[in-house]
């Protein structure tokens, strides 16, 4: 492990052992539904409250990923997890049922990649052998937290995104597997002074562009080095802004897609501008992208997750919405 450039890290020995995903009904019906390990017929996930439902999603992916990797609870050295609830209670309440050390992190919707960066440090320094990186989001808990009650009849503009109900887990290890985590770039908080809380994609796009630019210049790579550059949840409007900012800097990315646009069928599902939330990148990366990497259809993928740093109080106080973005590169090794 060493520092590269200003904000980047080069990892030597971090591999993806297994991944697992669990979602609600809407994600299962989406284009990548067949890659999802477990799904529920409604948002309740057989639980009494939305928060409990989100906990259940997290527990599912822990169980499934352990089973897939033929590991037991005692083999895990650390859980790094986060979500969007106040004081990340869902992650903490999930961790209380396991006899494993836990680091709770909050990185808004960047959590899936941020947890990988945090976890990879312990793996690469050979401190721990197996670390589980976990994230989740839930449509109803986020609506309750950041917007209006779910049954409220207010009209949402087309720019709003739909929070993904789902959880994704990645077990990383220092034993060699086919998928290696090679590079990471820690992003900066970028404030473009955009204030529309119903259009978060555009608020986050500048930070994603800065992180990508920083990543490419730190490692001195062209954008074409990667088979796919994937952003977290910029949605329709945000990804256009992202491309436009990069054009200003003479970076052309033909190999680009956005998790928020991949998880739902935007034409046939009522999801406005696309998916968002921690679970968005968490589910897409840990199901579809990992499957493509295992099949070696994709060999080098850069995932940049983006987070909007706000809460209902800050938006009511008319503060702008800064964004943050972290990047991790997955590469197939022989």
């Amino acid at each position: 492990m060493k520092r590269v450039g200003k904000n980047s890290i080069l990892f030597d020995n971090v591999y993806v052992l297994e991944t697992a995903t669990s979602t609600g009904p809407r994600e299962k019906k989406g284009p990548i539904g067949e890659y999802i390990d477990k799904d529920y017929e409604n948002l309740n996930c057989l639980e009494k409250s939305w928060e409990k439902a989100e906990c259940r999603l997290q527990k599912d992916v822990i169980e499934i990923s352990l089973k897939k990797a033929s590991l037991e609870e005692k083999d895990l050295d650390l859980i790094v997890s986060g979500d969007l609830n106040n004081q990340i209670v869902v992650s903490s309440f999930t961790a209380k049922d396991y006899d494993i050390p836990h680091i709770g992190i909050y990185g808004a919707c960047t959590t899936s990649i941020l947890s990988l960066i945090v976890g990879s440090n312990y793996i690469d320094t050979k401190t721990f052998n197996n670390v589980l990186c976990l994230t989740s989001s839930h449509y109803a808990t986020s609506e309750k937290q950041f917007r209006f009650p779910t049954e409220y009849g207010g009209q949402k503009p087309d720019t709003t995104t739909t929070t993904v109900t789902g959880s994704g887990a990645t077990i990383i290890t220092n034993q060699k597997t086919t998928i290696k985590i090679t590079k990471a770039t820690i992003g900066k908080v970028i404030d473009a002074e955009y204030k529309d809380a119903q259009d978060l994609g555009k608020a986050m796009a500048p930070s994603a562009a800065v992180t990508l630019k920083q990543h490419l210049s730190d490692f001195n790579l062209p954008a074409s080095y990667y088979d796919l550059i994937l952003t977290g949840d910029l949605s329709l409007g945000g990804s256009k802004v992202f491309i436009d900012i990069l054009k200003e800097w003479d970076i052309i990315i033909p190999n680009y897609n956005d998790c928020g646009l991949m998880i739902y069928d935007l034409n046939n599902q009522e999801v406005f501008s696309g998916g968002s939330g921690c679970g968005c990148a968490g589910v897409v990366v840990n199901s579809y992208i990992m499957a493509l990497l295992r099949k070696k259809i994709l060999k080098k993928v850069l995932v940049i997750t983006t987070g909007a740093l706000m809460n209902p109080i800050s938006t009511a106080q008319k503060e702008s919405i800064p964004g943050i973005a972290h990047a991790v590169a997955f590469e197939v090794v022989e």
């Binding site: 503009p157 087309d158 720019t159 970028i190 473009a192 002074e193 955009y194 259009d199 555009k202 796009a205 500048p206 562009a209 409007g237 256009k240 802004v241 436009d244 900012i245 200003e248 800097w249």
Partner: peptide, 11 residues
């Protein structure tokens, strides 16, 4: 640059 790009893609 950011604000121009956002303005350009106004929904």
């Amino acid at each position: 640059i950011f604000q121009e790009a956002i303005e350009k893609n106004k929904t």
